[in-house]
Design a protein around this nucleic acid. Structure first.
Lengths: 223, 223
DNA sequence: ATCCTCAATAATGTCGACAATTCGGCAAGG
DNA sequence: CCTTGCCGAATTGTCGACATTATTGAGGAT
């Protein structure tokens, strides 16, 4: 019995390549090329593409092949909106069910986040941010919602770098996380949901700002 | 250029067969058998199974084939919970954006629902119920959330018959819908979200009741 | 110069065959 | 009687070949 390393699975390999930005949005994904690139047969690649299409990372058109799905600005906002309500629900549940163990893990992550902010390391902070949220999903014990949120996150990942660039965002974000943590520690479901939704409303605002400033610079250059 | 009738697409055919209950939960789905049954090649059936697996209607195990996914009671409750927050959000948005046209369509559906209740036609009412909610999704203009809710709905469909059986459920449900409609008509987002969430909390309670009574009768018969 | 036609090309969709794997039964051994 | 190992049927996974379909580009007519 040999275990199957997930990293060798064509689906995961291709998914990782797309999410990590190795393919540009709207770039065509030719089955034969992908097959050779990741060292798999065309059949397996096909199956992977079907899954990724269903997942929303790839767009599959009959007889016209696959391309990396381009997430429009508006869609990114929609995704963030849905994330907000789902994570709000997860935070509420987490407040009711989180254990001492879970709280300790969260506190540990927050300590690291504080370090990253003080060091001015935006990208390191961003990764810890993801860890923080994932810990909450785990504590919530709600596979259905976690699965959905995970899928949304992978779609919106292209925009996550942009939000980190806003001046002063990290400090503010850190305070918001502390509020969430306090609510969880107090097992206050209402407060946890509210704090999480406010936090993600802030993220949404930042995203709007990032998109706006993008449009502004885009008009400056060619004009 | 010939249009492709969706009903002939193996994916939709198989999906419809599963959702409509032509296969039991946990029933094995042998590729060759399905292929012959719906008149398609094994390749197409394979692709359909992959999609349905990603969608959560089918469970695909490596080298062990596919089976209809069994949604446990707990999972059904989780699904309903997620549906509640998502539809709540959609109702809020719908309140802000619904047109006179959309309101008229909703009113028409509600009239029919009233008729079905008075006629004691639970199953007809249930279908109109689905239509009512779909109209709200449309009015909300939020493809991302609508898509997710649609997927959840198909997973939980097995339980929807059970909830309709509770005595007096239909009348109460009708009143709840009227409340939602009033909030939409008044373009009151807060009220719409609250009404929708309360409505679906009721549905969730009814579902808990259905599951409980199921367990009771299950223990009576063999005990 | 522009538009249309049509062949050449490249990619996808489908099929059949074969290899790999799982599962059930059956017999040998403890 | 129970466990273990092995064989065979059934099913899935993969590959290669071929049909089908879009796309591209050249050439000719207006």
């Amino acid at each position: 019995m040999k275990q199957r390393p997930l990293r060798e699975d064509p689906y995961h390999k291709l998914r990782e390549a797309i999410v990590s930005g190795q393919f540009h949005p709207n770039e065509r994904l030719v089955e034969a090329a992908i097959a050779e690139r990741i060292g798999a047969g065309r059949t397996a690649v096909r199956a992977a593409l079907v899954r990724l299409d269903q997942e929303g990372l790839v767009e599959l058109e009959r007889n016209r092949g696959a391309r990396v799905r381009h997430i429009s600005d508006g869609e990114a906002l929609e995704i963030e909106e849905v994330r907000a309500v789902l994570e709000g629900m997860l935070a509420r549940r987490a407040a009711a069910r989180i254990t001492a163990e879970g709280l300790r893990a969260l506190r540990h992550v927050m300590t690291q986040m504080r370090e990253r902010v003080e060091a001015g390391d935006s990208i390191g902070y961003s990764e810890l941010n993801a860890t923080f949220h994932q810990n909450i999903w785990t504590a919530a014990g709600h596979p259905t919602a976690s699965h959905l949120v995970g899928g949304l996150k992978s779609q919106g990942i292209r925009f996550q770098y942009q939000t980190a660039l806003r001046p002063g965002r990290a400090e503010r974000s850190l305070r918001e996380h502390e509020t969430i943590f306090a609510a969880l520690k107090a097992h206050d479901g209402d407060a946890a949901e509210t704090a999480m939704r406010e936090h993600l409303a802030e993220v949404l605002d930042t995203l709007r700002w990032a998109i706006d400033s993008q449009h502004r610079t885009a008009r400056w250059l060619p004009g």
